[in-house]
């Protein structure tokens, strides 16, 4: 199957099965993009807008320095005030915070597992045509695999984080011992290795997600088999990944262009004093419409990408099975 054929089929599936859009929205809400956000995720408009402006760094640090003196004078007053609060109160607050964080992480992981499981299951049911697609059937697909998927999201991330810590500590050691050049080289190499590792894990995760959601495989087995699938189908995986990435970029840019032109038109009209105030309700409506349409478009792109991966997965696994049967 060529990428054009995959795209055509995915387009038809997403167009016909509007229920999947809701699950795309759910995945977007819970995880941003799910596993392999590099290739899976929707447009990164919000991330891009939120990026840090490095030009402001200088002025910010100058302001910070002047505020530091003031803060250091206030600090003793505040610390003496807070030290008057009993230790048990801090313990209760800490416990509350801990419960909220732990439960929040667990619930969000489970919800993410469910949403992704539903979306993947839904796309497979839609590809199979014979299965009925509705809220109940798609939601049931997620309920079968959410625990496995939650583990798949949690444990590799935990391992990755644990592996990263020694690297960071070593980098800090280099800087403390005044070996700045060595430190920079070490950090650069570390960053490169970690980026590649993250990319490989993310792409392997795309296959692993499907192995858990469709084949009900345990998460460890799915993870290693996902890596194996990535290795054996490297070219096809990368092809679809890059095309999906470009699709996301193009959609993001188009959305930004549409939003930008609308905002620019309104600003131009808003500059005329009499029209300016009259435009206020229109601007409010426009902001709401942009938010709704933006979320919908992002969810649609996400659903579309999940479907393209599901189509390729089906093709690859079917080809693999046929090969095995021939060998037998």
């Amino acid at each position: 199957m060529t990428i054009t054929q995959i795209y055509k089929q995915a387009f038809n599936v997403v167009r016909k099965n509007k229920v999947l859009w809701a699950f795309g929205l759910a995945v977007l809400t819970v995880s941003g993009a799910g596993f392999g956000s590099v290739f899976n995720g929707g447009s990164n408009i919000s991330k891009g807008l939120g990026q840090f402006d490095s030009s402001k760094l200088g002025s910010a640090s100058a302001r910070l320095n002047s505020q530091n003196d003031q803060l250091s004078s206030i600090l003793p007053i505040l610390s003496s005030f807070f030290s008057s609060i009993p230790m048990t109160v801090w313990l209760i607050l800490g416990l509350g915070l801990l419960i909220a964080i732990v439960m929040g992480v667990i619930i969000s992981l489970l919800l993410r597992g469910w949403a992704v499981g539903s979306l993947i299951g839904g796309t497979f049911d839609a590809l199979d045509d014979r299965n009925e697609i509705n809220f109940a059937t798609v939601a049931m697909r997620g309920r079968r695999s959410f625990k496995g998927l939650a583990k798949l999201y949690f444990f590799p991330s935990l391992v990755a984080a644990l592996v990263t810590v020694p690297f960071i500590l070593t980098s800090i050691y280099f800087f403390i011992s005044n070996s700045t050049v060595l430190g920079i080289i070490f950090i650069s190499l570390t960053m490169l290795i970690l980026m590649i590792a993250h990319l490989v894990i993310a792409i392997a995760g795309i296959w692993a997600e499907r192995l858990v959601a469709i084949e009900n495989m345990p998460w460890q087995q799915a993870f290693w088999q996902g890596l194996q699938m990535f290795k054996t189908n490297f070219v096809r995986t990368m092809q679809l990944g890059i095309v999906n990435c470009l699709t996301g970029c193009v959609t993001g840019c188009l959305s930004l262009a549409v939003i930008g032109s609308l905002v620019a038109t309104l600003v131009i009209f808003g500059l005329i004093p009499i029209i300016g105030w009259a435009l206020l309700p229109l601007i409010t409506l426009l902001i709401i419409a942009i938010l709704v349409l933006g979320s919908l478009v992002t969810a649609l792109v996400l659903t579309f990408k999940y479907t393209t991966w599901s189509i390729l997965y089906r093709e690859l696994t079917m080809a693999g099975k046929e090969k095995m049967e021939k060998n037998d």
Binding site: A22, L25, T29, G142, S295, A299
Partner: peptide, 29 residues
């Protein structure tokens, strides 16, 4: 999970109750 899906897109799943079958998305799921 049900409330999560219903709450997306400005609570569209809740407004679904306004339809004839009076079912929200979380009911359907």
């Amino acid at each position: 999970a049900g409330y999560l899906v219903s709450g997306t897109l400005f609570f569209l799943g809740y407004f679904w109750i306004l339809r004839k079958d009076k079912l929200a998305w979380h009911d359907l799921m």
